[in-house]
Protein backbone atom coordinates (compact mmCIF):
# COMPACT_ATOMS: atom_id res chain seq x y z
CA UNK A 1 0.00 0.00 0.00
CA UNK A 2 1.59 3.21 -1.09
CA UNK A 3 0.07 5.09 1.79
CA UNK A 4 2.85 7.57 2.05
CA UNK A 5 2.31 8.69 -1.47
CA UNK A 6 -1.26 9.48 -0.77
CA UNK A 7 -0.76 11.26 2.47
CA UNK A 8 2.57 12.97 2.07
CA UNK A 9 3.44 16.17 0.31
CA UNK A 10 4.67 14.72 -2.93
CA UNK A 11 2.28 12.55 -4.78
CA UNK A 12 3.12 11.77 -8.38
CA UNK A 13 -0.45 10.73 -9.15
CA UNK A 14 -2.05 13.54 -7.26
CA UNK A 15 -2.70 15.93 -10.15
CA UNK A 16 -4.34 13.21 -12.19
CA UNK A 17 -6.33 12.04 -9.25
CA UNK A 18 -7.43 15.53 -8.52
CA UNK A 19 -8.59 16.28 -12.02
CA UNK A 20 -10.54 13.05 -12.29
CA UNK A 21 -11.90 13.53 -8.82
CA UNK A 22 -13.08 17.00 -9.57
CA UNK A 23 -14.71 15.81 -12.72
CA UNK A 24 -16.52 13.11 -10.80
CA UNK A 25 -17.72 15.32 -8.03
CA UNK A 26 -18.26 18.34 -10.23
CA UNK A 27 -16.51 20.21 -7.49
CA UNK A 28 -16.83 23.58 -9.12
CA UNK A 29 -16.15 25.57 -6.01
CA UNK A 30 -13.59 23.19 -4.64
CA UNK A 31 -11.33 23.46 -7.60
CA UNK A 32 -11.80 27.14 -8.13
CA UNK A 33 -10.81 29.75 -5.59
CA UNK A 34 -13.03 31.69 -3.25
CA UNK A 35 -14.23 28.98 -0.95
CA UNK A 36 -12.62 28.16 2.39
CA UNK A 37 -12.26 24.73 0.92
CA UNK A 38 -10.67 21.75 2.62
CA UNK A 39 -9.66 20.64 -0.86
CA UNK A 40 -7.71 23.81 -1.49
CA UNK A 41 -5.26 23.56 1.38
CA UNK A 42 -2.74 26.27 2.15
CA UNK A 43 -1.46 24.90 5.42
CA UNK A 44 0.54 21.89 6.50
CA UNK A 45 -2.25 20.31 8.55
CA UNK A 46 -4.95 20.74 5.94
CA UNK A 47 -2.67 19.40 3.23
CA UNK A 48 -2.17 16.20 5.18
CA UNK A 49 -5.87 15.72 5.44
CA UNK A 50 -6.39 16.53 1.80
CA UNK A 51 -4.11 13.63 0.96
CA UNK A 52 -6.07 11.39 3.26
CA UNK A 53 -9.32 12.53 1.66
CA UNK A 54 -8.26 11.53 -1.83
CA UNK A 55 -7.24 8.11 -0.57
CA UNK A 56 -10.58 7.64 1.14
CA UNK A 57 -12.42 9.10 -1.80
CA UNK A 58 -10.98 6.57 -4.20
CA UNK A 59 -11.60 3.68 -1.83
CA UNK A 60 -15.19 4.82 -1.62
CA UNK A 61 -15.54 5.13 -5.37
CA UNK A 62 -14.24 1.62 -5.84
CA UNK A 63 -16.44 0.12 -3.13
CA UNK A 64 -19.48 1.93 -4.43
CA UNK A 65 -18.78 0.96 -8.01
CA UNK A 66 -18.35 -2.66 -7.03
CA UNK A 67 -21.64 -2.78 -5.17
CA UNK A 68 -23.44 -0.97 -7.97
CA UNK A 69 -22.00 -3.29 -10.57
CA UNK A 70 -23.23 -6.36 -8.71
CA UNK A 71 -26.58 -4.73 -8.15
CA UNK A 72 -26.92 -3.81 -11.79
CA UNK A 73 -25.88 -7.28 -12.85
CA UNK A 74 -28.54 -8.80 -10.65
CA UNK A 75 -31.21 -6.37 -11.78
CA UNK A 76 -30.46 -6.95 -15.44
CA UNK A 77 -29.71 -10.64 -15.61
CA UNK A 78 -31.59 -12.15 -12.69
CA UNK A 79 -34.89 -10.68 -13.59
CA UNK A 80 -36.03 -12.74 -16.53
CA UNK A 81 -38.76 -15.20 -15.60
CA UNK A 82 -36.85 -18.09 -17.17
CA UNK A 83 -33.98 -17.70 -14.69
CA UNK A 84 -33.43 -20.81 -12.60
CA UNK A 85 -33.21 -20.06 -8.91
CA UNK A 86 -29.92 -21.40 -7.72
CA UNK A 87 -29.83 -23.57 -4.64
CA UNK A 88 -26.22 -22.92 -3.84
CA UNK A 89 -25.36 -20.78 -0.85
CA UNK A 90 -22.49 -18.54 -1.93
CA UNK A 91 -21.35 -17.92 1.64
CA UNK A 92 -17.72 -17.90 0.70
CA UNK A 93 -18.35 -15.05 -1.72
CA UNK A 94 -20.16 -13.15 1.03
CA UNK A 95 -17.36 -13.61 3.54
CA UNK A 96 -14.58 -12.75 1.14
CA UNK A 97 -16.22 -9.79 -0.57
CA UNK A 98 -18.08 -8.52 2.49
CA UNK A 99 -15.50 -9.05 5.20
CA UNK A 100 -12.13 -10.20 3.88
CA UNK A 101 -11.47 -7.61 1.20
CA UNK A 102 -12.88 -4.69 3.22
CA UNK A 103 -10.75 -5.75 6.17
CA UNK A 104 -7.56 -5.51 4.16
CA UNK A 105 -8.52 -2.16 2.65
CA UNK A 106 -9.56 -0.76 6.00
CA UNK A 107 -6.42 -1.92 7.73
CA UNK A 108 -4.31 -0.03 5.22
CA UNK A 109 -6.47 3.07 5.44
CA UNK A 110 -6.35 2.92 9.22
CA UNK A 111 -2.57 2.86 9.15
CA UNK A 112 -2.40 5.90 6.93
CA UNK A 113 -4.96 7.65 9.10
CA UNK A 114 -2.93 7.04 12.26
CA UNK A 115 0.17 8.43 10.61
CA UNK A 116 -1.64 11.57 9.57
CA UNK A 117 -3.10 11.99 13.00
CA UNK A 118 0.34 11.82 14.51
CA UNK A 119 1.54 14.39 12.00
CA UNK A 120 -1.20 16.81 13.01
CA UNK A 121 -0.13 16.70 16.60
CA UNK A 122 2.87 18.96 16.47
CA UNK A 123 4.65 21.09 13.90
CA UNK A 124 8.04 19.93 12.72
CA UNK A 125 9.82 22.82 14.36
CA UNK A 126 8.78 24.48 17.61
CA UNK A 127 6.63 27.59 17.06
CA UNK A 128 8.05 30.98 17.79
CA UNK A 129 4.75 32.83 17.92
CA UNK A 130 1.92 32.04 20.29
CA UNK A 131 -1.59 33.36 19.82
CA UNK A 132 -4.15 33.27 22.59
CA UNK A 133 -7.62 32.96 21.19
CA UNK A 134 -10.62 33.19 23.46
CA UNK A 135 -14.08 32.24 22.32
CA UNK A 136 -16.97 34.47 23.30
CA UNK A 137 -20.59 34.23 22.34
CA UNK A 138 -20.16 35.15 19.40
CA UNK A 139 -16.75 36.52 18.57
CA UNK A 140 -13.10 35.67 18.94
CA UNK A 141 -10.76 37.60 21.18
CA UNK A 142 -7.21 37.46 19.85
CA UNK A 143 -4.06 38.22 21.82
CA UNK A 144 -0.39 37.48 21.30
CA UNK A 145 1.75 36.05 24.04
CA UNK A 146 4.06 38.72 25.36
CA UNK A 147 2.22 41.49 23.53
CA UNK A 148 -0.02 43.87 25.39
CA UNK A 149 -2.84 44.45 22.97
CA UNK A 150 -5.74 42.69 21.43
CA UNK A 151 -7.79 42.39 18.32
CA UNK A 152 -10.84 40.41 17.38
CA UNK A 153 -11.90 37.91 14.75
CA UNK A 154 -8.62 38.30 12.95
CA UNK A 155 -5.38 36.42 13.42
CA UNK A 156 -2.24 37.44 11.63
CA UNK A 157 0.57 34.97 11.31
CA UNK A 158 3.97 34.97 9.62
CA UNK A 159 3.86 32.86 6.52
CA UNK A 160 5.81 29.61 6.46
CA UNK A 161 6.31 29.50 10.21
CA UNK A 162 4.45 27.33 12.66
CA UNK A 163 2.34 29.29 15.11
CA UNK A 164 0.99 27.98 18.37
CA UNK A 165 -2.67 28.74 19.09
CA UNK A 166 -3.91 28.48 22.65
CA UNK A 167 -7.66 28.24 22.93
CA UNK A 168 -9.95 29.11 25.80
CA UNK A 169 -13.61 29.87 26.11
CA UNK A 170 -15.30 32.16 28.56
CA UNK A 171 -18.73 30.67 28.08
CA UNK A 172 -19.94 27.77 25.96
CA UNK A 173 -18.10 25.38 23.65
CA UNK A 174 -16.84 26.69 20.34
CA UNK A 175 -14.60 25.13 17.77
CA UNK A 176 -11.64 26.76 16.10
CA UNK A 177 -11.49 25.92 12.44
CA UNK A 178 -9.68 27.34 9.46
CA UNK A 179 -10.41 24.76 6.76
CA UNK A 180 -7.52 25.64 4.49
CA UNK A 181 -4.97 25.55 7.29
CA UNK A 182 -5.84 23.08 10.01
CA UNK A 183 -8.57 20.72 11.19
CA UNK A 184 -10.72 21.64 14.15
CA UNK A 185 -9.95 22.06 17.80
CA UNK A 186 -12.90 22.35 20.15
CA UNK A 187 -12.79 24.97 22.87
CA UNK A 188 -13.79 23.26 26.08
CA UNK A 189 -15.11 25.18 29.06
CA UNK A 190 -12.73 24.78 31.97
CA UNK A 191 -9.79 23.73 29.80
CA UNK A 192 -7.05 25.25 27.69
CA UNK A 193 -6.67 23.60 24.30
CA UNK A 194 -3.83 23.94 21.90
CA UNK A 195 -3.34 23.66 18.17
CA UNK A 196 -0.97 25.11 15.60
CA UNK A 197 -1.09 26.69 12.18
CA UNK A 198 1.41 26.90 9.41
CA UNK A 199 0.49 28.69 6.22
CA UNK A 200 2.41 27.70 3.14
CA UNK A 201 1.61 30.79 1.15
CA UNK A 202 0.50 34.31 1.98
CA UNK A 203 -3.19 34.96 1.85
CA UNK A 204 -6.43 35.40 3.74
CA UNK A 205 -8.06 32.27 5.03
CA UNK A 206 -11.57 32.27 6.32
CA UNK A 207 -12.34 30.34 9.46
CA UNK A 208 -15.56 29.78 11.31
CA UNK A 209 -16.73 28.50 14.65
CA UNK A 210 -17.71 24.91 14.06
CA UNK A 211 -19.36 23.94 17.30
CA UNK A 212 -22.94 25.03 17.73
CA UNK A 213 -22.79 27.78 20.34
CA UNK A 214 -26.27 29.23 20.32
CA UNK A 215 -28.18 31.95 18.60
CA UNK A 216 -25.42 33.49 16.49
CA UNK A 217 -23.26 30.46 15.85
CA UNK A 218 -23.73 31.34 12.19
CA UNK A 219 -21.92 34.65 12.67
CA UNK A 220 -18.78 33.63 14.43
CA UNK A 221 -16.27 33.74 11.63
CA UNK A 222 -12.68 34.77 11.73
CA UNK A 223 -9.92 35.41 9.29
CA UNK A 224 -6.34 34.27 9.33
CA UNK A 225 -4.00 36.53 7.41
CA UNK A 226 -0.66 35.00 6.52
CA UNK A 227 1.94 37.66 5.71
CA UNK A 228 5.67 37.86 5.21
CA UNK A 229 7.52 38.05 8.50
CA UNK A 230 8.40 41.73 8.17
CA UNK A 231 4.82 42.80 7.58
CA UNK A 232 3.70 40.64 10.42
CA UNK A 233 6.22 42.14 12.80
CA UNK A 234 5.16 45.62 11.85
CA UNK A 235 1.54 44.75 12.41
CA UNK A 236 2.28 43.21 15.78
CA UNK A 237 4.16 46.32 16.84
CA UNK A 238 1.17 48.40 15.80
CA UNK A 239 -1.06 46.15 17.95
CA UNK A 240 1.08 46.70 21.00
CA UNK A 241 1.22 50.48 20.57
CA UNK A 242 -1.49 52.91 21.70
CA UNK A 243 -4.33 53.42 19.29
CA UNK A 244 -4.12 56.07 16.60
CA UNK A 245 -4.95 59.55 17.81
CA UNK A 246 -7.58 61.57 15.96
CA UNK A 247 -6.28 63.70 13.07
CA UNK A 248 -9.29 65.70 12.01
CA UNK A 249 -11.96 67.63 13.86
CA UNK A 250 -14.56 65.10 12.93
CA UNK A 251 -12.45 62.35 14.38
CA UNK A 252 -11.82 64.34 17.52
CA UNK A 253 -15.54 64.91 17.96
CA UNK A 254 -16.05 61.23 17.31
CA UNK A 255 -13.57 60.35 20.01
CA UNK A 256 -15.41 62.62 22.40
CA UNK A 257 -18.68 60.91 21.60
CA UNK A 258 -17.06 57.53 22.03
CA UNK A 259 -15.49 58.29 25.37
CA UNK A 260 -18.59 59.97 26.73
CA UNK A 261 -20.92 57.27 25.51
CA UNK A 262 -21.64 53.90 26.99
CA UNK A 263 -19.05 52.33 24.69
CA UNK A 264 -16.25 52.51 27.23
CA UNK A 265 -18.09 50.15 29.53
CA UNK A 266 -17.49 47.33 27.11
CA UNK A 267 -14.73 48.29 24.70
CA UNK A 268 -11.07 49.08 24.96
CA UNK A 269 -9.23 51.62 22.83
CA UNK A 270 -5.64 51.54 23.90
CA UNK A 271 -4.31 54.80 25.19
CA UNK A 272 -7.75 56.19 26.06
CA UNK A 273 -10.07 55.91 29.02
CA UNK A 274 -11.94 53.11 27.25
CA UNK A 275 -10.89 49.87 28.95
CA UNK A 276 -14.00 47.69 28.85
CA UNK A 277 -13.48 44.00 28.20
CA UNK A 278 -17.00 42.79 27.49
CA UNK A 279 -16.69 43.41 23.77
CA UNK A 280 -13.87 43.34 21.23
CA UNK A 281 -10.89 45.63 21.55
CA UNK A 282 -11.45 48.42 19.02
CA UNK A 283 -7.91 49.83 18.90
CA UNK A 284 -7.33 48.59 15.37
CA UNK A 285 -10.91 48.31 14.25
CA UNK A 286 -10.43 50.27 11.04
CA UNK A 287 -8.05 47.68 9.64
CA UNK A 288 -10.21 44.66 10.31
CA UNK A 289 -11.98 42.63 7.66
CA UNK A 290 -15.47 42.60 9.13
CA UNK A 291 -17.80 43.72 11.86
CA UNK A 292 -19.43 41.31 14.25
CA UNK A 293 -17.29 38.28 13.41
CA UNK A 294 -18.20 38.14 9.77
CA UNK A 295 -21.72 39.46 10.13
CA UNK A 296 -21.18 42.47 7.86
CA UNK A 297 -18.29 44.02 5.93
CA UNK A 298 -16.29 46.68 7.72
CA UNK A 299 -17.25 49.92 6.01
CA UNK A 300 -18.75 53.20 7.06
CA UNK A 301 -22.32 52.37 6.23
CA UNK A 302 -22.31 49.08 8.04
CA UNK A 303 -20.44 50.54 10.98
CA UNK A 304 -23.15 53.13 11.54
CA UNK A 305 -25.82 50.50 11.31
CA UNK A 306 -23.93 48.29 13.69
CA UNK A 307 -23.54 50.96 16.34
CA UNK A 308 -27.10 52.19 16.21
CA UNK A 309 -28.60 48.76 16.32
CA UNK A 310 -26.39 45.74 15.86
CA UNK A 311 -29.38 43.60 16.76
CA UNK A 312 -30.79 43.98 13.26
CA UNK A 313 -27.67 42.55 11.63
CA UNK A 314 -26.74 40.03 14.30
CA UNK A 315 -29.85 39.41 16.38
CA UNK A 316 -29.15 38.42 19.94
CA UNK A 317 -25.50 39.49 20.09
CA UNK A 318 -24.25 40.90 23.35
CA UNK A 319 -24.05 44.55 22.24
CA UNK A 320 -27.27 46.43 22.93
CA UNK A 321 -28.54 49.12 20.53
CA UNK A 322 -26.69 52.40 21.26
CA UNK A 323 -28.60 55.66 21.64
CA UNK A 324 -26.13 57.66 19.56
CA UNK A 325 -27.19 61.09 18.45
CA UNK A 326 -27.84 61.03 14.70
CA UNK A 327 -25.68 64.13 14.31
CA UNK A 328 -22.77 62.60 16.19
CA UNK A 329 -22.85 59.34 14.34
CA UNK A 330 -20.78 60.35 11.28
CA UNK A 331 -18.05 61.64 13.60
CA UNK A 332 -18.08 58.49 15.62
CA UNK A 333 -17.78 56.45 12.45
CA UNK A 334 -14.93 58.59 11.23
CA UNK A 335 -13.12 58.11 14.53
CA UNK A 336 -13.56 54.37 14.63
CA UNK A 337 -12.47 54.02 11.01
CA UNK A 338 -9.35 55.99 11.78
CA UNK A 339 -8.29 53.40 14.34
CA UNK A 340 -5.92 51.38 12.23
Amino acid sequence: MAGGEWAGHRRPLAPVARIVGCGLLVLLGGCSGGAPSTLDPAGTGARRVEGLWWLLFWISVVVFAEVMALLAWALVFRRRPDRRISRVEPTRFVVVAGAGVPFVILLAAYGVGLRDLAALRQPESPPAVTVDVTGHKWWWEVRYAGVDGATANEIRIPVGEPVRVRLRTVDVLHSFWVPQLMPKTDLIAGKVRETWLRAERPGEYRGQCAEYCGLQHAHMALQVVAQPRAEFDAWLARLAAPAATPDSDAERRGQQAFLQGTCVACHTVRGTAATGTVGPDLSTLGARWSLGAGAVPNDGGHLGGWIVNSQTVKPGNAMPPQPVDAAALPDLIAYLESLR
Binding site: A74, F93, G98
Partner: peptide, 26 residues
Protein backbone atom coordinates in the same frame (compact mmCIF):
# COMPACT_ATOMS: atom_id res chain seq x y z
CA UNK B 1 -15.23 2.48 14.25
CA UNK B 2 -13.42 1.00 11.29
CA UNK B 3 -14.10 -2.55 12.39
CA UNK B 4 -17.82 -1.97 12.73
CA UNK B 5 -18.10 -1.66 8.97
CA UNK B 6 -17.25 -5.34 8.56
CA UNK B 7 -20.59 -6.72 9.78
CA UNK B 8 -22.36 -4.10 7.64
CA UNK B 9 -20.36 -5.25 4.66
CA UNK B 10 -21.33 -8.85 5.35
CA UNK B 11 -24.97 -7.94 5.27
CA UNK B 12 -24.68 -5.90 2.09
CA UNK B 13 -22.97 -8.75 0.29
CA UNK B 14 -25.38 -11.33 1.67
CA UNK B 15 -28.21 -9.34 0.11
CA UNK B 16 -26.34 -8.92 -3.15
CA UNK B 17 -25.64 -12.67 -3.21
CA UNK B 18 -29.29 -13.40 -2.61
CA UNK B 19 -30.17 -11.28 -5.59
CA UNK B 20 -27.48 -12.87 -7.72
CA UNK B 21 -28.70 -16.40 -7.16
CA UNK B 22 -32.41 -15.66 -7.08
CA UNK B 23 -34.99 -14.55 -9.60
CA UNK B 24 -35.86 -10.94 -9.07
CA UNK B 25 -39.36 -9.50 -9.18
CA UNK B 26 -39.20 -5.72 -9.19
Amino acid sequence: STVITIPSGLQIFAWLATMLVGRIVV
